[in-house]
Write a protein that binds this DNA or RNA. Structure first.
Lengths: 111, 111
DNA sequence: TTGACATATGCCTATATCGGCATATATAGT
DNA sequence: ACTATATATGCCGATATAGGCATATGTCAA
């Protein structure tokens, strides 16, 4: 078997940095594809493909407006990620982890 | 180009469900490989490979104890995911009132 | 209708994956 | 030294990717 498809779920879709960037941009509101192309400095076809992945996992929605297609965020599909990672919040807040961090800092200073 | 390596960052490493399962198990404390094998019902080599990926991105650490290797969670590498997704909390909880705030958070974090 | 603009899709290639399975390495016990 | 146990690694095959680039589809305007 190969790796799970990027369209399998939000976890896979969001593993790609460019797609996170796109979501970050869409977090400010609706944007046409060309807006994203300009903001990202990426070729238009690649942006459209990333948007297709995001749409297939329900992270964005489209709306036709003339010859433009306006994409907007639908953050609900991000909730599973949030719910999963939330259980780990204490994993870097706990004291023994903080101790590890302190030790690492000390090691780093020995240069 | 192909997809980014699973060992690129926590986002890619955690996109695989089995690896999330492993982290969930390790969240309860140190575990030997065979413990995980038994709990997951997966062949031992695959578990070792998943653990290698998790170790390469700093999500787990190993400790030798006799002929066993005890793995434990290091949740600090999950923080980037948490920080990124945290900005979207309101995207499914509330209306678009706080979107400006979301944007500010994002800009402060990733760039 | 023609042409400009906006977006999507198709084809290509190189690459990394995951699982299955065999095997190598390491340690403990007798 | 030999054997059982614990874990890691190597090779295989099938598959999906991301970017590059050409092209198709769709829409407006003169």
């Amino acid at each position: 078997m190969a790796r799970a498809a990027t369209t399998t779920d939000a976890f896979n879709a969001v593993a790609e940095p460019r797609r996170r960037q796109i979501l970050d941009l869409l977090a400010t509101g609706e944007h046409a594809v060309n807006d994203l192309v300009a903001a990202l400095g990426v070729a238009q076809p690649q942006v459209s493909k990333h948007l297709r992945v995001l749409r297939e996992v329900g992270l964005v929605e489209v709306r036709d407006e003339g010859r433009q297609r306006l994409y907007r965020l639908d953050g609900r599909s991000l909730k599973p990620i949030h719910d999963w990672i939330k259980a780990y919040e204490r994993a870097w807040e706990a004291r023994f982890e903080a101790m590890d961090e302190v030790l690492d800092d000390l090691k780093r200073q020995e240069h």
